[in-house]
Amino acid sequence: MKFTGTDNYVATDDLMTAVNAAITLERPLLIKGEPGTGKTLLATEVAGALDMPFFEWHIKSTTKASHGLYEYDAVSRLRDSQLGDDRVQDINNYIKRGMLWEAFVSEKQAVLLIDEIDKADIEFPNDLLRELDRMEFYVYETRETVKADNRPVVIITSNNEKELPDAFLRRCFFHYIRFPDEETMEKIIAVHFPEIKKRLLKEAIDVFFTIRDVNGVKKKPSTSELLDWIKLLLAEDIDPEALREDATKAIPKLHGALLKNEQDVHMFERLAFMSRRQDS
C-alpha cells in the first residue's frame, strides 16, 4: 500500500516518503507549511488514493481533546429523567462518539484528519498522546475501553500558531510543505485546469511569482489563490498578451483573487504608475 499522489494532487517525492513512512509504521504524520499549500487536501487525497474511509476533525480554539473521543450529553439525560423517559436507564444513549472513536472502530483502516491542531489550547496535543500512541481510550461513563482494530492513518495539520509539545512531536513523522517552485506549480495547475493554454499558463505563473517576489507584499498570494485567479482568467477569457503587458505596466487583471489587502493593491498601483512614468 503506497501513496504516490493522485490525479488531482501533485505530491513531491519528500511528501510521498513521509506519507508512506507514516502509513507503514502507523504513526501520525504532522504537516506544516505556508497557508494554501494543500495541507488539508492531502488527507482527503490519501484517503481517496488508498480507498479508505475518511474522518475529519476540525479543531477550534475551544475544542478539547475529549471532544474527539466522545461526549457525554448530561443535559439530555437530565431532561429525559424529568420526563420519565425510559432511555435514561442506559447511559449509552447519551454518549456521542467523536471522530477518533469513529475512526478507531471503522471496519476498514481509515484516514483521520486532525485539522489545524495549533488552534486549540497548548495542552491539547498532550491530552491526545496516549490515544494516538496506543490507539485506545477508556470511556469512564460506561467503563469500557475503545481500541482500534485497524490503526487509522492519522494526518495532523498545523499552521504554526503555537508550538507543539515535544512529547507529541516525538510520536509523529513531520513534513513541511514548501512553497512549490515554478515547475511543480505548472504541474499543479495542469492537474486543476487540463484545458489551459500553454501561453496563458506561462504568463500567469510569471505574474504570480513576480508578485510573490516583490518586496514588502503584506500577504503573499498562495497556491490556492493562484488557482482561483486562473479560474477567473479562464472564465473571463483573458488574452495572454494582455497579461504580459500587465506584469510591468499595471496591476494584474482581476487582481482581487491574488491581492487580499488594500495596502498591497495600493503598493502595486504605485509601482505600476512609476514604471509607466519611466517608460514615457
Binding site: T17, A18, A21, L30, L169, F173, F174
Partner: peptide, 9 residues
C-alpha cells in the same frame, strides 16, 4: 526524506 521526516520535527 525519511531521515528528515522521522528525526526533525
Amino acid at each position: 526524506y525519511l531521515a528528515r521526516a522521522a528525526l526533525v520535527k
